[in-house]
Design a protein around this nucleic acid. Structure first.
Lengths: 214, 214, 214, 214
DNA sequence: TATGAATGAGTTTTCATTCAT
DNA sequence: TATGAATGAAAACTCATTCAT
């Protein structure tokens, strides 16, 4: 079951009729279309994509939009939340990797996938979405704690960092594909990530001058 | 004279009366308030902050807003442009430093100042403001090229990077002060920057697998 | 099919959905109401009637106004343009009358119908609507040229007039229904027109002292 | 004492200070400038000319505008009222002419002068200015009654007209200088008026079919 | 049920009028 | 007193959301 289907399920629960009947097949199909359309709209237009735009992309009317979705914001949050859950799952797979450092590197590479949601995900990580994503962000923080701790215990990430430092470092790759008027392509992210990982390794780092208040 | 006063001066010039008289004291005070309010609004609300919000923050009516400022967009751009120009000036000082690497590090630290504008500046760097900031962004790119080149020539930044890679790395510190529900304090930025710089240094880096198409 | 229905059709075409389906009954009804309201508003308030006023007259919200009409200006112009086109059609019928003078008189009587739009049409004829009505005004001028020429060739309109003089004379009957605090009724226009036509006839007129630069 | 000075006096009375002191010389000078500026603004921009525009034309600040004038509307009405009083005075002179018909013709020619105030005066005559001009319009109606009656008694205006018919006829020459996209010059008005007067004369007119309810 | 029409609060901006300098 | 700054009530227009077909 992939990212989008889970967002679909969530929305179907939120709008379920109280008698507990199963949603009809066409109802599910429309939710699926709306979620996919919302994801595309976020990537292309940004989080300010209008309900009409998303409905049109999905090939349904606004009426159907609001029958299937509590609000425009709820739909966008469902999509963003699922993207974050995807990252959590990538982290879980990384934690099962026999080599802590390789696992961490693969997780970091997965983080790059966030760019696909462009500015939208940056705002979500930055807290612009209020408390709606809090639970999932907490899950994600926990994964960071475990992944960084494991790599530090193995002597592969410098010991003078707190796990909290790492999300701030990876913010560079979670940023949208443009900065300073430059546009990133695929190889850009590989290089950026490489330098970041280089800086995280233990061998001969410059000692840090401040400590994170853990 | 700091960033804000320069933005104030720019706006006063744009709305000056043709007879060339000095603006009245209350006029200048209100422009100052509006610029400060705009900066705060950009930081907290983002570049979509409304004219009413900015006017209310400044403690003036909308009418005053539009008497003092050509348009909402012009105000926001004036503020963002000044912030970017500040970075350019920091880069110019860094280029005069006798040690290329030390100069680069000081410039990178100045980049941290961008956080003050939080999401707003991120959007500006990401191109959300259209072409209005193009000229200043080009100036800034040129500084990056010189600073990185000088440090590479001195053997202090790894030679397998293009200068264009560096702004993407520094995007981490230009991001707003929150990520994953964590909030950065002053020491956070110092540590983040230290690890980034560590990864940029020449000694024994992991070789990159892609090259930037220069 | 009368003037208003044609304006309605025009607007329906401009806002039609691309799939080519028929507009819904309530949509058409609201366009009809808006066109009628616009006509009434033009007559009473003039071309500066606000979108809110027109919407309120039509008994709909502003939102509906802008869903049904590209802009306030477009609605007013559609209405005014149709009124002018009605006059053109009256002129075409007059040109088919076997008696040139009778035809002209009937056309002149139709001009009286413009009063219904009162100040609004006066402004439209006077050029207050910019160039939006230019094409239709040119059509109307051409009709004047033909009608006056035909009546002059038949010796029924004094030969010392240019056709351009006649629209200025008929401006009297195109004016709104009030002047000097007096209000015109139906018989008023008949009498006004009679005297105007009297002055146009050939028999023994006072010679003109200026000639129109044709 | 000409038109403008009387408008000036009126406004000086309306804004006089209660102790009854004479207005200062510079106060009068500013009112004079404002009245002249308003007249020019009405002619060029129309009655929608803004307070700022009029003040700027007069070379004073808005503050002075509102110190000297109760409101923008009051100033415009004062100007329009004076124009109407000018017409009354022309009528009075016409009533003293030994030849009733010649007197009437001269009055009619004076009516043409109204064009100078363009659309503004048309709206004023049409009643767009509410009741503010009622008194002066009543004066003007009385002059029409006398002038037309005198010429009818002398057998020079056709007897089947009521005096009320004549203002509607003369509306043609009180209209602004454009119609149908054509622009009137000086000779235009002479010709238009000639045909109107031609229609009014007694010799062999077409009998009217309606009578004015006197 | 799906559709798209209707709604009205909210956005940017202007301008008549009041008030501080 | 003269000035021009400040004000806030519109105006045109958009869009999230509800409702009739």
């Amino acid at each position: 079951m992939d990212t989008l289907s889970r967002a679909v399920d969530r929305l179907l629960v939120e709008t379920a009729d109280p008698t507990g009947r199963q949603p009809r097949a066409d109802a599910r199909r429309n939710v699926e279309r709306l979620v996919a359309a919302a994801r595309a709209a976020i990537a292309e237009t940004g989080v300010e994509a209008s309900a009409h735009e998303i409905a049109a992309r999905a090939g349904v009317g606004v009426g159907t939009f609001y029958r299937r979705v509590p609000s425009r914001e709820a739909l966008l949050l469902a999509v963003l939340d699922e993207v974050l859950l995807d990252i959590c799952r990538a982290a879980d797979r990384a934690l099962e990797h026999p080599d802590p450092w390789q696992g961490f590197c693969e997780f970091a590479a997965a983080y790059v996938g966030l760019r696909g949601e462009s500015c939208g995900i940056g705002e979500a990580l930055g807290g612009a979405c209020g408390e709606a994503l809090d639970a999932t962000l907490a899950e994600l923080r926990e994964r960071f704690r475990l992944l960084v701790g494991r790599a530090q215990d193995a002597g592969r990430i410098r010991a003078d960092l707190a796990w909290q430092d790492v999300p701030f470092l990876l913010a560079a790759v979670a940023t949208g594909p443009r900065t300073l008027g430059l546009t990133a392509d695929e190889s850009q992210w590989r290089r950026t990530l490489r330098v970041l990982l280089d800086g995280l390794r233990t061998a001969d780092p410059v000692p840090l001058t401040g400590r994170h208040p853990r």
